[in-house]
Computed example of a mutant assay.
Amino acid sequence: MQKLALFLLLFSNLLIAQNDGWNKIKEDIYQKTVKENSKETVKDPDIVAFTTYGFAKGETIQLDPAKQITSVQTSFEDLKSFIKSDLDLKKDSKYLVKIQMKEPENYKYNIFLLDKITKQDKEKLEHYLKKNYDLTSIEYISKEDAKNNAKKELGVEEGDLFEEDVFPASFQLYSKKPLQLEPVTKLFPKIVEDTIDNNQLPNFIVFDVKT
């Protein structure tokens, strides 16, 4: 019990440190004043500029170009709509707004298969995945299905030039928890071509706002 109490205390202090200097304006949304040069409040028609940055869990906030996601100018009204929260900003000033991202309800992965694998190869891999991973669902997508899905998404009409053989068969996996798929590539080198993690979203986003 003492160890648990100590852990909870340390965890609580860590959360406080992460949000030190930030003003909580809504659940999972924080605002920090960098420079305030006016007492005049920004209103909906006013134009603001903001740059967004993405960060991983526990990462220090440094507004590095490598972390930049986008940079735009828009109305203050649109900024509030995008963030889904009211903001108290003054003109000719600079602020940071931090949004904690929610964990996905389902984690999604793709395992792309090499061409010319046998039915037995497919069944062997599927059995391994179901036995060794806690999956909510698993779906096999054939080369034909992958081709048709690509045509639909790209808006390709019948008769259009289209490289039909470039889309591999795959397994699409869903799980409530993150998965480590490196063992699959190592154990099935003659079956698996590649694995894709579709969940590489930032843990939190920071808006660098200039009014």
Rank of each mutant, 00 (worst) to 15 (best):
E36F: 02
G155Q: 10
S142E: 06
E77A: 13
D44V: 08
D20W: 05
A5W: 04
D46R: 03
I99K: 15
L129F: 01
P183R: 05
D78A: 12
K57R: 12
T211Q: 02
K94V: 13
V42K: 01
Y95K: 01
L181A: 09
K3T: 13
K3N: 13
I83Q: 02
S85A: 15
I196K: 15
K177W: 01
F76K: 06
P202W: 02
I205V: 15
Y107A: 10
L113E: 08
A150K: 10
K152W: 00
K147H: 07
I29G: 04
P45C: 09
K131F: 00
M1L: 08
D88E: 13
D44L: 08
K186H: 06
V192L: 00
K151A: 08
Y140K: 02
L10G: 11
S12C: 09
T33Y: 01
S93W: 01
L89P: 00
I99G: 04
V209L: 06
Q73G: 06
E126C: 02
L181W: 01
L8N: 11
K116R: 11
S12V: 07
K176Y: 05
Q100V: 14
K67R: 15
V42D: 05
L179M: 08
E182V: 13
L125Q: 10
F55Q: 09
Q18P: 01
L129N: 13
P45N: 12
I191N: 03
F207Y: 15
S75F: 02
V34M: 08
T185E: 11
T51G: 08
A56D: 12
N37D: 10
I29S: 01
I83M: 03
E77L: 12
D160L: 00
F171C: 07
L113H: 10
V166Y: 02
K24R: 14
D88W: 01
E27L: 06
K116P: 00
E77Q: 14
Q68K: 15
N110G: 09
D20A: 11
E126V: 06
S170V: 05
N132R: 04
I99Y: 01
L4R: 11
F207C: 06
L87K: 02
N132D: 12
Q120D: 10
